[in-house]
Write a protein that binds this DNA or RNA. Sequence first.
DNA 1: GACAATCTGAAAAATTCCTTTCACATTTTG
DNA 2: CAAAATGTGAAAGGAATTTTTCAGATTGTC
Lengths: 306, 306
Amino acid sequence: MTDVRTLLLDQKLVLTPSEERIVQILLADYPASGLGTAGNLAKKAGVSDATVVRLAVKLGFEGFPDLQKRLLSEVEARLHSPLLMMEAKRHDGAVQGIAEAYLHAVSETIDKTIGATPSNTYDKVAKIIMAAKGRVGLVGGRFSRHIAGMLSGYLSQFRSNVQDIGTLSAQSFDILVDYGKRDVLIAFDYRRYQNDVIAFASQAADRGTSVILFTDQWLSPIAEHAEVTIICPLDVPSPYDTLAPAVAQIEALVAQILASLDDATRRRVESLEAVRAYNAVTLDGADNVSSTQPGPKRTKGTTSDA
Amino acid sequence: MTDVRTLLLDQKLVLTPSEERIVQILLADYPASGLGTAGNLAKKAGVSDATVVRLAVKLGFEGFPDLQKRLLSEVEARLHSPLLMMEAKRHDGAVQGIAEAYLHAVSETIDKTIGATPSNTYDKVAKIIMAAKGRVGLVGGRFSRHIAGMLSGYLSQFRSNVQDIGTLSAQSFDILVDYGKRDVLIAFDYRRYQNDVIAFASQAADRGTSVILFTDQWLSPIAEHAEVTIICPLDVPSPYDTLAPAVAQIEALVAQILASLDDATRRRVESLEAVRAYNAVTLDGADNVSSTQPGPKRTKGTTSDA
DNA sequence: GACAATCTGAAAAATTCCTTTCACATTTTG
DNA sequence: CAAAATGTGAAAGGAATTTTTCAGATTGTC
């Protein structure tokens, strides 16, 4: 008996946009999010109840209760897993430092992240970004704007018209006049969701701009307007949530884009890299102000390691 | 919140014979047997539906669905267990996309990171930062400056005189006149190590400023001048290295600092958070069945979006 | 630009599920 | 051994959920 997760991740499965949203929610908190009512799941995914039922049927079930039954039996199986018995013991294990424990938690979160987003999502986003005829804008909240900045740095190597909007101010909204159907807005919004970011993204969406959203499992309100939502399950034992998985996600996206570049663009990236290698420190340190120490490995002209 | 199992095992609870049968079934396969319908559970226990409902009420719930909701959130908590995540990870390991493989690699890198830095290092850095009488400056390279920005955002919540130096330009070096023995400079430098960052940090060190360096395993030349170096082992199969572990490290540092705050500072942070909560979006999470994590805190008087 | 095909949500309809009621059985108490 | 109290299931009633239908919207195609 194949498990539902496998069904959901099946490449051959052709899903409508609304259905994909449901799948994403389902995977983001699998399988718990499918154990409530169909209506509940629909609400979280921002679609109608009917669509949830249709998805269940499409996956080969009699209806939603049928799918749920299967989900339930999986839960049962997993709760009986021998691993779980070990877990209780592990809890009072070695006393780690605060920082170590934190890093552990982050690592686990990234593992969860892997299961939380269908693999073709990155591909889809990569295509949207590279195919956009207009501009690609990036916004983020108090902390996540730094991630927007990083992604913007990467993207501007691959295409032109990348605009890092930075900290939102009243004037920032003027930028919106330039946004329309040909443009793409990449928004980062993790809790506490920020009103200004939400307003900005919503207005862009209203103007026909495709919105790509990076958010956590509780979903920013922007998800309503987003064409694609990339979810990061955050539950780290800290007053502040971790953004490391989000960074990993944008880097994964970059890796995806890199893999799909045509030759011309790849050459562009390579020549950019060559310029950088020239300006960076070299092993023999001829131009290195105050250090004669061993530096990084010298690389000539290739981008392979950077 | 007491878990249902505890309620069921409560000695003070006086149960009728039929009720005991239900409890037995429930505990025998806890909590899965309670996740179906009330009628289903009744059948398994060999009692009527009505008796199941009465038990739920007797236990202090509104009705059966109420009990089930609680059960569901317990399941979710258990399914989030790290060990089970590992298991799930192995499961769908077969066909991975580029993005998935990348995330895997990042996760492993973070695991390595844990061993790469002695546990007291974070503590030491935390003390240096919080004890500095002068200013705390942050610099970084092309991409790592975003990490500097994030850390700067965190730090300015804990102390004053935090200066995010941002992109280095010729003028940036003027800032150095203000740096001396009472100050701290936090530098981020991952390969390709940037000459400007190296020069800046070196000169600050020459002026007596304590330099804290975040770098990769090949060590930026700044390491020579740094008082403390925090290393991140980077070897991800991508033309670009990952910065996610670096983000995790600064967050771990923040966690360390948070743990060592005195009451006055902690109150400062809390009131900052309160202000934010007020300005953040409010969501209605009341009927969210499958999440044990609270969503954003509800605050009155704010509108949800603009 | 028009047509067909598909997608989607709102609302109605059908079904399932939960709860209450009530009559009967069982146990407890005087 | 009554008589009261409690426990129980069947069935009816009510509530909630799932499913279907239908019309509007969108997308893709010629």
